[in-house]
Amino acid sequence: MNAGGTCALELESVSKVYGSGDGAVTALNGVTVGVRRGTFTAVMGPSGSGKSTFLHCAAGLDRPTSGRVLLGGTELSKMREKALTELRRTRIGFIFQAYNLLPSLNVLQNITLPMRLAGRKPDPQWLRQIVESVGIAKRLEHRPSELSGGQQQRVAIARALITRPEVVLADEPTGALDTRTARQVLDLLRSIVDEMGQTVLMVTHDPVAASAAHGVLFLADGKLAGHLPQPTPERVAERMTHLGEW
């Protein structure tokens, strides 16, 4: 977990407190972690452990109460909202459980939307490489409603990659998929990391999903509660059952 040029994303002593006084809730408590470029990292923890807040702070969607978040050396907490929006559009890719595709746009238009919003034209070669690698090259004219859940999530992955982001943040990306489709999507995410050198950070509650990653970060009560390299579903599940003892 070394800092410096090898990290795509760094959180330094990040704390996030919601509310104030007696009603204050500490969602993150002094979390320091570096996500190395070209790695696939899963984030796990019991309900209420701070996983969502972790992802939101990493994405610049939530500002930490204290500490710093750095994306490739850019400190997010110091940026104004307009600059942050621009950064999220071009330097971070997002994948959600609910796909978040626009029903009125076809697949190609959904994929290239982040570029259009940023006022840029997609690189045709990169676009072709992405749609082929995620396996939807033959579906570009279709609307989301004409696709299966797994295909829609592939479109969402392509959309996340179109700007060549520095990091892709995935929030329960297989949560709405059946086991077989989920496996295909996880294999796809892993191949994007291994073959394209992309960096993926994925929040999940599923030990099987987490086992697709190179390593798993565990959160408990808003604190970092360990790291498991080369995870297997069994080892992840075992670690999760012991998290209450941290």
Score class of each variant (00 low, 15 high):
residue 14 V to N: 09
residue 178 D to M: 06
residue 124 P to I: 12
residue 240 M to V: 07
residue 224 L to G: 15
residue 152 Q to V: 06
residue 183 R to S: 14
residue 152 Q to N: 09
residue 243 L to G: 05
residue 222 G to R: 13
residue 145 S to E: 12
residue 157 I to W: 03
residue 151 Q to N: 03
residue 82 K to L: 08
residue 144 P to M: 05
residue 166 E to H: 08
residue 111 I to P: 00
residue 89 R to N: 14
residue 35 V to W: 01
residue 2 N to D: 14
residue 116 R to V: 10
residue 198 Q to A: 15
residue 217 L to E: 05
residue 83 A to I: 12
residue 3 A to Q: 12
residue 49 S to K: 12
residue 68 R to F: 13
residue 160 A to V: 04
residue 178 D to R: 02
residue 180 R to P: 03
residue 185 V to C: 04
residue 178 D to P: 10
residue 95 I to Q: 00
residue 197 G to P: 04
residue 106 N to E: 08
residue 89 R to Q: 14
residue 76 L to H: 07
residue 161 L to A: 07
residue 33 V to P: 01
residue 194 D to V: 07
residue 135 G to A: 14
residue 159 R to G: 04
residue 56 H to D: 10
residue 66 S to D: 10
residue 16 K to E: 05
residue 135 G to D: 10
residue 223 K to L: 13
residue 129 Q to D: 14
residue 59 A to L: 09
residue 231 P to H: 00
residue 207 P to V: 10
residue 81 E to N: 12
residue 216 V to F: 07
residue 124 P to N: 11
residue 38 G to C: 06
residue 74 T to Q: 14
residue 199 T to H: 00
residue 244 G to M: 12
residue 1 M to Y: 11
residue 29 N to G: 06
residue 91 R to W: 00
residue 107 V to W: 02
residue 181 T to L: 05
residue 177 L to V: 04
residue 157 I to R: 02
residue 175 G to C: 00
residue 202 M to K: 02
residue 74 T to V: 15
residue 113 L to F: 05
residue 182 A to I: 10
residue 170 A to I: 02
residue 16 K to Y: 10
residue 30 G to F: 03
residue 129 Q to T: 15
residue 6 T to P: 12
residue 142 H to F: 02
residue 142 H to P: 01
residue 113 L to R: 02
residue 239 R to I: 03
residue 196 M to T: 06
residue 23 G to R: 13
residue 98 A to L: 12
residue 235 R to G: 06
residue 105 L to V: 08
residue 32 T to E: 01
residue 237 A to G: 10
residue 62 D to E: 15
residue 168 V to Y: 00
residue 100 N to Y: 10
residue 212 A to Q: 06
residue 133 S to D: 10
residue 89 R to K: 11
residue 96 F to A: 02
residue 76 L to S: 04
residue 226 G to F: 05
residue 75 E to V: 11
residue 184 Q to E: 15
residue 5 G to L: 13
residue 205 H to R: 03
residue 227 H to N: 11
residue 84 L to V: 07
residue 76 L to I: 07
residue 137 A to N: 13
residue 210 A to L: 05
residue 128 R to T: 14
residue 114 P to R: 00
residue 121 K to W: 02
residue 240 M to Q: 09
residue 38 G to D: 03
residue 66 S to K: 08
residue 20 S to W: 09
residue 7 C to H: 08
residue 124 P to S: 13
residue 136 I to H: 08
residue 224 L to Q: 15
residue 222 G to M: 12
residue 32 T to W: 01
residue 4 G to Y: 04
residue 107 V to F: 01
residue 75 E to Q: 14
residue 149 G to M: 02
residue 25 V to I: 13
residue 135 G to V: 14
residue 225 A to I: 11
residue 18 Y to F: 15
residue 207 P to A: 05
residue 6 T to E: 15
residue 187 D to I: 08
residue 185 V to K: 02
residue 112 T to N: 03
residue 59 A to H: 08
residue 217 L to A: 13
residue 231 P to Q: 00
residue 89 R to V: 03
residue 125 Q to S: 14
residue 158 A to F: 09
residue 178 D to V: 10
residue 225 A to Q: 12
residue 231 P to N: 03
residue 146 E to M: 04
residue 221 D to S: 15
residue 109 Q to T: 08
residue 104 S to G: 01
residue 185 V to W: 01
residue 135 G to T: 11
residue 47 S to T: 15
residue 184 Q to M: 10
residue 16 K to P: 05
